[in-house]
């Protein structure tokens, strides 16, 4: 240890909130949910059921859409839709 030792700042174990923290998880998908807009009644059941938050709603009153970059293709949105406004299609 020399007297002119450089005093480095501590590296603390802090992680920062990041979209896509696990990468583009859309690549996990084998099939994808697709909206049939004319059937959608904007009940947003799909939005609340989606574990990932990949069903997006721009602002209140808008049609929801899917963020395919991250959608893992679980199909929950399709399963909960009361009006058949979503269907699973193979990738």
């Amino acid at each position: 240890m020399t007297e002119e030792h450089e005093l480095k700042d501590p590296v603390l174990p802090l992680g920062r909130p990041t979209i896509g923290s696990a990468g583009n998880t859309g690549t996990w998908r084998t099939s994808k949910p697709v909206f049939i807009e004319e059937n959608c009644i904007k009940c947003y059941q799909c939005w609340v059921a989606c574990p990932e938050g990949t069903i997006r709603v721009d602002s209140k009153g808008e049609f929801p859409y899917v963020d395919y970059v991250y959608c893992k293709g679980c199909g929950m949105c399709v399963h909960v839709c009361p009006k058949g406004a979503l269907e699973m299609k193979p990738e």
Binding site: P10, L12, P13, L14, G15, R16, P17
Partner: peptide, 15 residues
């Protein structure tokens, strides 16, 4: 504090 749990500057400690 050098780092503090704070809503204005959220972090996950020890993830």
């Amino acid at each position: 504090p050098l780092a503090m749990l704070d809503s204005d500057n959220p972090f996950a400690h020890g993830s």
